Amino acid sequence: MTHPEPTNPDGRVERPWGWFETLASGDHYQVKRLLIRSGRRLSLQRHHHRCEHWVVVAGSGELQVAEVVMAAVPGTTVFIPQGAIHRAQGGSDDLEIVEVQRGDWLSETDIERLADDFGRL
């Protein structure tokens, strides 16, 4: 089940690290496009009700899944199992990711933040 969020006129949901937009959704899946601004990063987080698959489509940065940290360049892909700690960070350029979520409950409230540069713990 998905829960809509307020969006700006172009359909993007603004966050302190950048923005995301929902591209598609269906029974137990959702596809989003995320833009993480240069030098900013998502919270260190995990999800209890979904797994994610990230595909870097543009820009540069860094991806972390559990203890593994890797460079993020176009073509980089990573699977994030349900419950795995993860984070993405923009590098010298903005980082653009297509994210496929799968699970029984797909909601922005299914984010457990362990660390956050913007005080959203």
Rank of each mutant, 00 (worst) to 15 (best):
Q101I: 03
Y29R: 04
L42P: 00
D27L: 15
R50S: 02
Q64Y: 03
V13Q: 09
I111C: 11
W17V: 09
A24I: 13
V98G: 06
T2C: 07
I97A: 05
T22W: 04
V57Y: 04
D93Y: 14
L114G: 04
W105L: 15
Q64R: 11
R15K: 15
D10W: 01
A115E: 15
R33E: 13
G26K: 13
H28I: 06
L34K: 08
V78Y: 02
P4V: 10
H49P: 00
D117L: 15
G26I: 12
A72M: 07
I111H: 03
Q64N: 02
R37F: 06
L95T: 04
L95H: 05
V31S: 05
E14C: 08
R12P: 02
I97L: 15
T22D: 10
D93W: 15
D10F: 03
V57R: 13
R37D: 11
H49D: 06
H3A: 11
T109L: 10
D10K: 12
Q64W: 08
R50T: 00
P9A: 13
H86E: 02
R12D: 11
Q101D: 07
W54E: 03
A66Y: 01
G59Q: 03
T7V: 15
V57I: 12
I80L: 05
L121Y: 10
P6H: 12
T22Y: 01
L44C: 10
D27H: 15
G11H: 08
W17E: 10
G91Q: 09
G59Y: 11
A24Y: 11
A66R: 02
A72I: 09
D116N: 14
R87F: 02
D93P: 06
R33P: 02
H86W: 02
V65Q: 04
H53Q: 14
L95Q: 04
S25D: 14
D117H: 14
N8P: 01
D110R: 02
E112I: 15
R33G: 06
G90P: 01
R113T: 07
A66T: 07
A66F: 00
H28P: 01
V98W: 12
T109K: 14
G39Q: 14
W17L: 10
R46S: 11
P4L: 12
R40L: 15
A88S: 09
E62W: 01
M70L: 07
L34A: 03
P74R: 13
D93T: 14
H48K: 12
D116Q: 15
Q101V: 01
